[in-house]
Design a protein around this nucleic acid. Structure first.
Lengths: 122, 122
DNA sequence: GTTGTATTCAACCAATTAGTTGAGGACGAT
DNA sequence: ATCGTCCTCAACTAATTGGTTGAATACAAC
């Protein structure tokens, strides 16, 4: 199992939680310490610390050291990895459906021209 | 809690599993029945059926009825919803870091021009 | 050195999840 | 009507997860 597999596992799992998505949204505006991040929620500071650790293990954020503070910093490259995975397959699927739609439209037009309603093209 | 919140919860959680990501990858090529999907893996058919249900509850796939078969069909729009969420915040973060980098570069240049190496800007 | 602040570690609990096996439902073919 | 096929439902298990509280660490400041 490739290494990027586990990375994607963790990244998608990390964003599956609404609190963690909210943290990411806030970190896209500005870096913040764990304490600052925890302030708006009515869960314990430790719970938020855990959430940040999940984001960190997923590679979505990094932490630096500033005295006893640990400023959390969003890592856009990890987000980019996710979109690239998704977009690859979304594009394939959409291209396929466009081709299928075009084929169906052409077939329907042919039928109409021939005045047929329910025939096999053999 | 918004409705799109739960949708995103489920979609991200669904793609957090490597087997389910593999299913999505294969469905981007062609629709397939549960039996066909299950064939390559060495887990039970029921396990794959459950995985497909998770993808379905997340809105990532739909199922039609063809006799006793249930062809599974990838839904690119759900994937699009995910990329839109991610890209919004990725763009914000990257724009912010670009601005910060530019500022730092400018400051470093100013320092150099003044011949200073480690000074506070008041 | 003692105090205060910022954060993590550890142990625990309840809920969820990915897997199993066994039974059952829906449908086509004979 | 019965048989085989495709698939889901139900019940169970083991592992993971999001939350809790209490103790410990790291550092600045006094």
């Amino acid at each position: 199992m490739g290494d990027s597999t586990k990375q994607l596992d963790r990244a998608f799992a990390a964003l599956a939680d609404p609190t963690r998505r909210d943290l990411v949204a806030r970190l896209s505006i500005a870096d913040a310490t764990v304490g600052e991040l925890a302030e708006p929620y009515d869960v314990s500071l430790q719970a938020i610390s855990k959430h940040v650790k999940v984001l960190e293990d997923a590679g979505l954020v990094t932490r630096s050291k500033d005295a006893q503070r640990r400023p959390v910093h969003l890592n856009p490259e990890a987000l980019d990895l996710m979109t690239q995975w998704i977009e690859r397959y979304r594009r394939d699927a959409e291209a396929r459906y466009r081709r299928l739609d075009a084929l169906l439209a052409r077939t329907a037009q042919d039928d109409e021209e021939r005045g047929t309603d329910k025939e096999q093209a053999s």
